[in-house]
């Protein structure tokens, strides 16, 4: 037996965090190099670190590749209709304030189809942890451009490049009243988990944007060869600026290589929560 074989024997079949996930459904449906799996993984670690038992956590998601999250976590979860993760989660948070409700969904589901719910849940400061996985397009349906697609980025509905100004999600969340706002990427695994934990401990509306590669749809249309290539873009261009005040200037331009991508925990304020 070679040393290489030795070190992985006995070959593992169970990951230490498997108890918080529906490991019987693994390998999951997501594409190779997709960042959504890393986000689900990070959420599971945050649950473990929260000190609350699994039955105090609830996960709600909407439709799309990111919406698959609710199907892979081993806590009570609900896979809502398109864009309606937030109103469903709001119902749970109001009826059972003792639960820690996390919404994991995509940029399209949360900010386009469910955009109205987002601004009003933030305005009301409902005690929710929103993890918005931003991969800059509608991945599941074939790479249509959405409200987060950078100007100039190509998509199946914009073969010559998107022309509309995208949302700057942390700025939107702050402006509409979120008590905690952060932006990280799937490369910032520890910072992201820490932000999710802070969101879980916050009595108020928390919004975490997490950038994730979608090599199959967004990557293919934009000469980003695979998931690693996009994560390398994050590594080269991300600048951490916790507490940044100038959120309105921190748009993400994934296409223009000269522009930094600012990440960090931006907002952490105390505001009257919806339910006290």
């Amino acid at each position: 037996m070679s040393a290489t074989e030795q070190i992985i024997h006995p070959a593992a079949t169970v990951h230490p965090i498997d108890n918080l996930l529906r490991a019987d459904r693994f390998p999951h449906i997501l594409c190779p190099g997709c960042g959504i799996g890393t986000v689900i993984h990070g959420y599971a670690h945050a649950i473990a670190a929260s000190g609350l038992s699994e039955d105090r956590h609830v996960c709600v998601s909407g439709i799309g590749c990111s919406g698959r999250a609710a199907g892979y976590v081993n806590v009570d979860s609900y896979h809502s209709t398109h864009g309606r993760a937030l109103p469903f989660a709001l119902g749970i948070a109001v009826h059972k304030p003792e639960l820690n409700v996390t919404v994991i969904s995509g940029d399209g589901d949360l900010t386009a189809i469910g955009g109205n719910h987002l601004i009003h849940a933030a305005r009301r400061n409902v005690n929710l942890n929103v993890i918005c996985i931003n991969n800059f397009n509608y991945g599941m349906t074939g790479g249509q451009v959405g409200p987060t697609t950078p100007v100039g980025a190509k998509g199946s509905t914009a073969p010559r490049g998107a022309v509309e100004q995208p949302f700057n999600l942390p700025y939107l969340a702050k402006a509409t009243g979120a008590a905690f706002v952060a932006r990280w990427t799937v490369l910032h695994v520890r910072e992201f988990q820490d932000a999710v934990l802070r969101a879980m401990n916050k009595n108020g509306f928390s919004f975490i944007e997490v950038l994730a590669p979608c090599p199959t749809s967004f990557g293919r249309a934009n000469n980003i060869g695979d998931g690693l290539h996009e994560v390398e873009i994050y590594r080269e261009r991300c600048v951490i600026e916790n507490g940044a005040q100038n959120l309105e200037e921190l748009d993400i331009d994934l296409i223009d290589a000269s522009k930094p991508i600012t990440v960090g925990n931006f907002v952490d304020i105390d505001r009257k929560p919806f339910i006290e």
């Binding site: 992985i8 070959a11 990951h15 390998p27 890393t38």
Partner: peptide, 19 residues
């Protein structure tokens, strides 16, 4: 550290090897 690999789950994304 000792490395444990659940080989049947891997999708060859290269993240672990590269970083």
């Amino acid at each position: 550290g000792r490395v444990h690999i659940i080989s049947e789950r891997c999708k060859q994304c290269n993240f672990c090897i590269n970083y």
